[in-house]
Design a protein around this nucleic acid. Structure first.
Length: 176
DNA sequence: AAAGTGATCATG
DNA sequence: ATGATCACTTTG
């Protein structure tokens, strides 16, 4: 039986939470009913010192959500088209987040938000208490491999090459 | 290989 | 007010 994931788990450091989230169920209440998809790929973004993290340039109107407590949803529009979904993690005041990059059946951070009807209206949602968006744990723990993060060429070398992407081995995506 | 698309943020 | 820059997807 699946249980909702609570504050304690979602307040882990992002580097720890990203692999931990693999295999968990991302749940979304929609007009048609409750959608559940298993998380298969994640990336972590860790603080202002991580030059790939949106918070690396400090707190702004957009990035202030990253400073919220663990379990807050951070959703923003990328390339004018795609909503990207992140789980804020770590302690309140420290900007860390885990980007959900793929779920069962859908690899690609923009695709999963489209099928799950996740958009910026859910930005700032607290996934510990929300009845629209939350995470469940049914005990499934896949093996996973690590890779470099995608699409962050603007980051400094140290953070470009770090293995902060986590891919469940039974996901469809094959790392290079 | 490259366009499509619009919020965001630094600049003026 | 303007313009460069994107944590992407799809099409050819």
């Amino acid at each position: 039986m699946a249980e909702r994931v609570g504050r304690w788990a979602l307040s882990q450091p992002a580097e720890q939470l990203a692999p931990w989230l693999l295999g968990k169920l991302l749940c979304r209440k929609s007009a048609e009913g409750i959608l559940r998809y298993r998380i298969m790929e994640t990336e972590c973004y860790c603080g202002e010192e991580d030059t790939a993290c949106h918070a690396s340039k400090g707190k702004t109107a957009r990035t202030k959500i990253l400073y919220e407590k663990g379990g807050t949803a951070y959703i923003y529009l990328c390339y004018g088209i795609h909503s990207l979904f992140n789980v804020v993690s770590g302690e309140e005041g420290h900007p860390e987040a885990v980007l959900v990059r793929g779920v069962s059946g859908y690899n690609g951070p923009g695709k999963l938000t489209r099928v799950m009807e996740i958009d910026r209206s859910l930005n700032g949602e607290d996934m510990v208490t929300s009845d629209l968006l939350w995470i469940e744990d049914d005990g499934y723990k896949p093996q996973y491999s690590r890779a470099k993060r995608v699409g962050i060429d603007y980051a400094t070398e140290k953070y470009r090459d770090i293995l902060w992407r986590f891919i469940a081995d039974d996901g469809k995506y094959k790392p290079v």
